[in-house]
Design a protein around this nucleic acid. Structure first.
Lengths: 136, 136, 136, 136
DNA sequence: GTGGTCTAGACCACG
DNA sequence: GTGGTCTAGACCACC
């Protein structure tokens, strides 16, 4: 499971972990009943406090994305795929809406917004660097 | 100067104030050398503590958006318009980029993204409720 | 009496007025028993609140730099010259001491300090623009 | 980190803290990535309110002198050394310039100024009392 | 009237 | 444990 975390980001680390796990599930890179790293292992990998990873895992379990098998570790749930796709779609729509509202507050027309969107789209696709393939 | 604040929002109140002042400047509703309400007055209007308003004003001054005349109050700086427009554009681009990256991580094509964008755009323009007109 | 005041300076306006009056006296540009402008006149000239000028004059009188003749206005006292020279010398020494301490805290040797002094000295003398001659 | 603060000084306490931290960095007594005391700890040490320390730390961070690691505390930034040296040099030059201008306004020649400088220099070096050695 | 500084103390999020 | 936010209220300097 490939995850990166930026401790200086304004987003709390445990949220970053949650989001990335959800992202991997939504993108089909983590499948149902697949194991994810132990709290301690991931803490070491990310150079992060184990409590932080534990908190992320706790919330993932609360949301039904993961489940635990005693003595074996943490696994992706069957429901996870649906949940994470929903999450991703909601997130995407929220971000788009926020952006659009910001632009309109600024006085941009729909056309200007669309042009801005295309511009950013091109910039992003141009600089897209493929992620490293599966690890862990 | 019309400002609203939501004390239950996750965004700190003083940041909400900062953003709204910047928004008003960027939208041309606050002009250079125009006075903005006194710390105490705005605190009363928003039903928050004067210190909270003071903190917002402090950062606005640090960023060069406002300046103070001793004993007279706080005013919009000449540079404010440029600064706030830049701020708005940067914010807009960041939000769009975040949204686009989120969509791509999810595996959406550029076309699918554009369709999502248009959809949200329509939804937002449909529900656009005009802001209350100028007060103060 | 030629005075300028900078309302955006961190030094309070009334202190700036006081200092400049003392400076003019110490430099021999204001003589004993010479009148200085009325509170209202100076307030107009400096585009400043009359209370501010009044406060400066009050303090000057307290320090014995000026005296009032009822119905005639404010005048430089006989003692003013001595007082202001003392004030200037004290100020000068204080500024030098502060500078030297700052330099030493930073780890500069006496030689390095002296070199810095000479440098600034040259810079200042080079850019010295003569003040406008007496007005008022 | 050795810091003293004078609550009766006209300089605000939080500014005193800022200046002393900058001084310690400029003098090489605080190094990059070195931790500085927690807000609460320093507040206790200096016998001031934690908010006052927090404000000082806030501005230090705004200026790029420090950075925070969430849950771990506050640290000196890599850029701090340069920033603080610049700050010290600027301060020194400003003080020297102010002193020189004051002297000239008074009518002193460059030679007289230099003599005054040497005199103060000697006086200061004579009374120099070594700072207490490093603590915490 | 304006803003600036400071205290005291509460509550929360993060690690 | 760390820092962040907010409130309440005091006192002061300046205009």
């Amino acid at each position: 499971m490939y995850i990166r975390v930026n401790p200086t980001d304004s987003l709390p680390i445990y949220i970053q972990i949650i989001n990335q796990v959800k992202g991997l599930v939504a993108a089909g890179k983590l499948l149902a009943d697949e194991p994810i790293p132990s709290v301690r292992q991931l803490a070491v990998d990310l150079a992060v406090n184990p409590n932080t990873v534990a908190r992320a895992y706790l919330e993932l379990e609360h949301e039904g994305i993961t489940y635990k098998r005693r003595g074996q570790g943490t696994f992706i749930s069957t429901a996870a795929v649906v949940l994470c796709k929903d999450h991703t779609i909601t997130t995407l729509n929220d971000l788009l809406e926020e952006a659009i509202r910001e632009g309109m507050r600024f006085g941009l027309t729909e056309d200007q917004l669309r042009r801005a969107f295309d511009e950013v789209c091109n910039r992003v696709t141009a600089t897209m660097d493929g992620e490293p393939s599966q690890s862990t």
